[in-house]
């Protein structure tokens, strides 16, 4: 019963958030200068051509009406048509989604696979050179900007060693899909992995001082079990928050990584929409990203509960 009420409240909250975000982005795009027709026609536009195009794009209709039409479409799952591509926004998002999704999943997997053992190793050997090395590496990973790492990776693995293709996306008739994924995944997972190592190590060290760990040890549990079953599980809670935030950002597409590795993902699509004042496309992108972030936050909340029964969903 409690659970159902909670879910309902949460769902309403999510819808309101997405609507608010979409309204704000709509208003912003109207307030900033620049006209889609002008951008499409560039410096050679005749005034008649501009007027005709504005009419064709529906830019001559009042603002409120445009928003209302868009909103009604949204309720039917119709995000309208892109001004520049003249295709349904849903279709455009759908095309770009696999690139972004695969990349995000690969980056999160890689980050977790590296961060969990590294953080445990560092925590268990706190204060030793091993710990110092891992902490140093994670600080470096946090400090180095991913676009720079991306370029370095391309120079090293594509130009010098010739192991991997310098970006791009799977081409018809050529290209091992895995090869194209490796470098952007590494570049994208670096800041997340580094952040996780640093955070996990810290929270394991905190948890390990707690009473229940002392109890576990006093019971005679083997040290490995103490770390894996008790310490890590509790230390994962703050890490989940960080992971959730990063995942939301990853699903929005990483503009810089997509740009450097020439990947046709969501980030570049949204950037294109901004530059071209393609408001239906941008609105669609924003709604999609907002929904993804809200959903991830919700899932994160649920996972908190399963990690730590004291954080019950009914408590909110």
């Amino acid at each position: 019963m409690h659970m159902r009420a909670y879910l309902l409240r949460k769902a309403v909250g999510m819808v309101v958030t997405v609507l608010l975000v979409s309204t704000i982005s709509f208003v912003f795009l109207q307030v900033i200068p620049g006209d889609p027709a002008q951008v499409i026609l560039g410096t050679e536009a005749s005034p008649e051509a501009l007027q005709d195009l504005r009419r064709q794009l529906g830019l001559d209709r009042p603002l409120g009406l445009r928003y209302w039409t868009w909103l009604r479409g949204l309720l039917r799952g119709d995000l309208g048509e892109s001004l520049r591509y003249q295709r349904p926004v849903v279709e455009l998002l759908w095309e770009r989604l696999p690139v972004t999704l695969v990349l995000a999943a690969a980056a999160v997997t890689l980050a977790l696979t590296v961060a969990l053992p590294m953080a445990l190793l560092a925590a268990r050997h706190a204060g030793t050179p091993v710990d110092l090395l891992i902490v140093l590496a994670s600080q470096l990973g946090l400090a180095l900007p991913p676009f720079w790492i991306g370029l370095l990776l391309i120079i090293l693995f594509s130009l010098q060693l010739r192991w991997l293709p310098p970006g791009g996306y799977v081409l018809p008739g050529g290209g091992n899909p895995l090869g194209y994924l490796v470098l952007p995944t590494v570049a994208l997972s670096l800041p997340l992995g580094a952040h996780l190592i640093w955070l996990l190590r810290q929270s394991i060290l905190e948890v390990i001082e707690r009473d229940f760990i002392r109890t576990a040890r006093a019971k005679g549990l083997p040290e490995n079990l103490v770390y894996y079953r008790h310490a890590l599980r509790n230390a994962l809670i703050p890490a989940m928050t960080v992971l959730g935030i990063h995942m939301g950002a990853l699903l929005g597409g990483s503009i810089i990584i997509e740009q450097i590795f020439s990947l046709p993902g969501l980030g570049r699509l949204v950037l294109f929409a901004v530059y071209n004042r393609d408001w239906p496309l941008l609105q669609g992108g924003v709604v999609f990203i907002a929904t993804a972030v809200v959903l991830i936050n919700f899932v994160t909340d649920l996972i908190y509960g399963s990690l730590d029964p004291r954080i019950s969903v009914t408590d909110t």
Binding site: G34, V39, T43
Partner: peptide, 9 residues
């Protein structure tokens, strides 16, 4: 100034 804005202004 960003291009769309530049064109407009």
């Amino acid at each position: 100034m960003e291009w769309g804005n530049w064109l407009d202004r």
